[in-house]
């Protein structure tokens, strides 16, 4: 994430005096951002998890192009690679692994597992990122308004947060799914069984139930930021509300937002998988890590690798994002315990 407002960043840093004196002496003259980056780089675990996340993101971005240019083939059948007499199990050991299909082929269809997994990363990440962005946008806007305005606006938003949190999220996602997808489909190209409405439904509902926690965090941050002089100054010179919210306050929130983002992503990647298990979300043949795992359940005993691989990929990205989030938080706030 790039940072523009260079002179304002210091505002967010909680209690810089917490760092040992010797450190301060050594790295004097560096900006707080630079300090944080240095701390982050020094932490091996953070760097590893950052690399893993970066690899996943790279896969996610490049997979559609690789599919387009025919390098990956997530939907093409290879009937000659599965044995109809065994109900379509792949021919050969390790799930039919070969030079052409390093992760083997899917039972029944002979589709290339590696292609499906890589392309699945694209869709899993897209869903998680979209839902995270919706949650963060709503949470941030309401958090800023609530924290800055105070008064009755604050209490209304506070009650809205309580209300949203009291809904059982998974239940709502499941219960609203059949009607919800149909509703979403009305506003989108494609029918109820297309990927767009199914994916969009998950994204929207995850986002709509995900903002309250973020709003609370942001509100807390805003409460401290609004006492700063530059905000007073902006108010005094008669800056508009919108300007104060988005030009003065928002740039000071990037640190908590970054941490929130990296910690919300893994939750939504897991949520996508869990919802796939319940039959909600993008449906095959378009792959997501969740629906690949779901379709491999039947083969848990017959073709264990096929069952294990998608689960493993989900585990790795969820762990990495969590560690990355922790690492970023610690780098920004060295006093926080690890």
């Amino acid at each position: 994430m790039t940072v523009q407002a260079s002179n304002l960043e210091s505002e967010h840093l909680p209690d810089p005096t917490g760092a040992p004196e010797s450190d301060i002496a050594k790295i004097a003259g560096k900006s707080p951002t630079k300090l944080a980056m240095d701390r982050f780089r020094r932490d091996k675990l953070s760097m590893i998890s950052f690399t893993v996340v970066a690899v996943y993101v790279l896969i996610g971005i490049s997979a559609p192009f690789l599919v387009k240019f025919g390098v990956l083939d997530p939907t093409g059948f290879n009937k000659e690679l599965v044995d109809p007499s065994t109900g379509g199990l792949p021919i050969g050991s390790y799930g039919g692994a070969s030079w052409d299909h390093p992760f083997g082929v899917e039972p029944g269809t002979g589709r290339d597992v590696l292609s499906r997994l890589l392309y699945g990363v694209t869709f899993s990440l897209t869903i998680a990122i979209s839902a995270t962005i919706i949650a963060i946008v709503i949470g941030t806007v309401l958090g800023i308004i609530s924290g800055f305005t105070g008064g009755w606006v604050d209490s209304i938003i506070g009650r809205a947060i309580d209300l949203t949190l009291s809904f059982p999220q998974t239940l709502m996602l499941l219960a609203l799914s059949s009607m919800g997808v149909a509703t979403v489909a009305k506003f989108m190209p494609g029918g109820e069984s297309d990927n767009l409405p199914n994916g969009a439904y998950v994204v929207i509902v995850l986002g709509l139930f995900g903002w309250p926690g973020i709003a609370r965090i942001i509100r807390g941050q805003v409460l401290s930021v609004r006492e700063r002089e530059f905000v007073d100054a902006a108010v005094l010179i008669g800056a508009s509300r919108r300007r104060i919210y988005f030009k003065e306050i928002l740039p000071n929130l990037w640190a908590p937002l970054l941490v929130t983002f990296t910690l919300t992503m893994p939750a939504y990647i897991s949520a996508e998988a869990a919802l796939s298990f319940l039959g909600v979300g993008i449906i095959p043949p378009t792959p997501t890590l969740g629906n690949i795992l779901r379709s491999s359940i039947n083969y848990s005993i017959g073709d264990f690798m096929f069952f294990f691989t998608p689960a493993f990929l989900i585990m790795v990205i969820v762990v990495s994002f969590n560690l990355l989030g922790d690492g970023i938080r610690d780098a920004l706030d060295p006093k926080a315990a690890r």
């Binding site: 869990a274 359940i297 848990s300 005993i301 585990m315 790795v316 762990v319 969590n322």
Partner: peptide
Amino acid sequence: LVFYAFPTFFIGLFLLKF
């Protein structure tokens, strides 16, 4: 962390099936 990060239904199914 690993147990937390594996999808619950994977863990559950693993325990059940194996």
